[in-house]
Amino acid sequence: MTPNPILGCGIGLRFQHIDQILAEKPPIPWLEILSDNYLIPGSVQQDYAIEIAQHYPVTMHGVGMSLGATDPFNSEYFLRLKKLADQLNPAWISDHLCWTSAHGWVSHDLLPLPYTEETIKHVVQRIREAQDRLERRLVIENVSSYLQYQLSTLTEWEFITAVAEEADCKILLDVNNIYVSAFNHDFDPCRYLDSISIEHVQQFHLAGYEDKGTHLLDTHGHPVSDPVWGLYKLALQRFGALPTLIEWDNNIPSLEELLAEAHKATEAHIHAFA
């Protein structure tokens, strides 16, 4: 069955809003389901996700594939993810261009990779394997980062472009993450945008960061900042009015407030081309 089309500006589904969404069924263009929270087969949490997917177009977004790790893939993780996808019929599945596990330990945080030719080869092979396991093309997201490795020889935009091309996957461009990393590593975010090939980008993410003085922290705990709205407008002009999603994970606001933030993104779609 062809999944429902993903159009316009949606929101990430959070536990706090599920009961309200199911009870009131407010108009929401689409919802992103954080896969990792629904991976116990036959659990009540999956029941909720399945019910949401019956009423709204959904995508699945994950944090646990650990695409850049050198530990072997966790087969159980991929089996459960595939099974969930079979039930939710998402338009696509995304995860991050990063690693989360090593040494048998799992950080549950998104850790950056060293940007080298060697890493490209490794990650490309891992993404291909992940795509085979899930029997679909993946969408990979740029992470925000707070450190750069001595080892890195490439810029992040060179790295992500090469990976997407060679692994034949799509890109979820997180505009806030670009802005956060640009501040933290002192590069020009516009240059980043301009270097990403148009045909690879599938979707945008927007979120709010926290200014810690010495660095920006990607806490998803605030409204989208003005400079990120500015960068988003440039992204729309370059890549077109692609589906966009608001992520909010800390200080989670009311559903109404969250939808209002998504509405601002919809308005940006209109004004970007005015």
Partner: peptide, 16 residues
């Protein structure tokens, strides 16, 4: 330095 060693070193710092 191989990726493996880099990642082991970093994740060790997260928990030690």
């Amino acid at each position: 330095m191989p990726l493996l060693e880099l990642q082991q070193s970093l994740i060790s710092a997260l928990f030690q």
